[in-house]
Design a protein around this nucleic acid. Sequence first.
DNA 1: ATTTGTGCAAATCGTTTGCATCTGA
DNA 2: TCAGATGCAAACGATTTGCACAAAT
Lengths: 130, 130
Amino acid sequence: MLREAGLRPTAQRMSLGAILFSGCDRHVTAEALYHEAVQASVPVSLATIYNTLNKFAEAGLLRQVIVSGAPTHFDTNTSNHPHFFVENTNLLLDIPAAEIVLEKMPAVPDGFESAGTEIVVYLKRKAGCA
Amino acid sequence: MLREAGLRPTAQRMSLGAILFSGCDRHVTAEALYHEAVQASVPVSLATIYNTLNKFAEAGLLRQVIVSGAPTHFDTNTSNHPHFFVENTNLLLDIPAAEIVLEKMPAVPDGFESAGTEIVVYLKRKAGCA
DNA sequence: ATTTGTGCAAATCGTTTGCATCTGA
DNA sequence: TCAGATGCAAACGATTTGCACAAAT
């Protein structure tokens, strides 16, 4: 899988890949993945986590999701789908692509091409619910 | 205007407000607004710019726009509209709300309520165009 | 008189980088 | 052998904060 993506299959990358891709789709931050790796006794540094996540994203294995007020998240589901994000938490949720439909895409200005669309619906806890 | 928003009208806030709201709709970063203010001989510190932008946003006078790979932008157009963002620049553009239509909004999970939707279409320069 | 904002510098957070070392091709 | 990856610690950029002072109610 790494080789196919043009990445050298090193020990760390294989271990991280196993954590990320062996189960269901998931969202991680660098920090969270680092803790998981440490707990799984994967010898890896935080810097390498950042490098690896960025390489994976570059190679199309992961999708970067930027949200306001939280560190960058990476999504193992690389399809173009929107997200919910709960404010003041690290909770990022997929929205099934079917749940939201763009009626019409805006015309891209001359000389440019689209490099992807990000849609994030911010959520807050309803008043009264602890 | 400041008073209506529940903000104390100080000299700095009035000057910054004048820069932001006297012309057409615009997008600024803290750093950019700081330089503008300095050039306009407004005595203000960068920390105050940040405070002011955050207060303005909180009060609903500005809208925060988060983009990947650039500092936070603030939009004087507080209506809920999507943006183009040109990668590796600070160029943020409004997309008229009419240009994009959501067919269907995703159901908000139980116990939460929506706090706003962000839509950003990332653009890159077309290959071959310097 | 009291509350709130300001300025500065220092602190913080997330992330990247320089460099020496190691490792996979 | 040698490009590329790793680890560490230091550097970094954007933003926030603590505290003394000033200004607004």
